[in-house]
């Protein structure tokens, strides 16, 4: 099991490298998400596990009902 120090160091390094929160990706993601729901928080974490795992966490307050399919 990786130590807490290891997890923190890895998060820091990946954040320095990719920092999706500072890129257009994050902005566009927010736009898409807010079309479908009202949310408290939106978080993007990166983990390296051989591959790069990107975990998007959305804390949704209210999900809009989408009766008609969006094109």
């Amino acid at each position: 099991m990786p130590s807490d120090n290891y997890n923190r160091a890895q998060a820091m390094i990946l954040d320095d490298k990719y920092n999706l929160a500072k890129t257009g990706f994050f902005k566009e993601l927010r736009e898409v998400v807010t079309k479908y729901m009202e949310c408290d928080a939106l978080k993007v974490d990166t983990f390296s596990n051989g591959n790069l795992d990107i975990v998007i966490t959305i804390s949704a307050k209210k999900l809009y009902k989408q009766l008609t399919p969006v094109e």
Partner: peptide
Amino acid sequence: SGEMLSAFEVFGL
């Protein structure tokens, strides 16, 4: 004691 990163963890990072 698990309080410091090991050299191998640093190599891995």
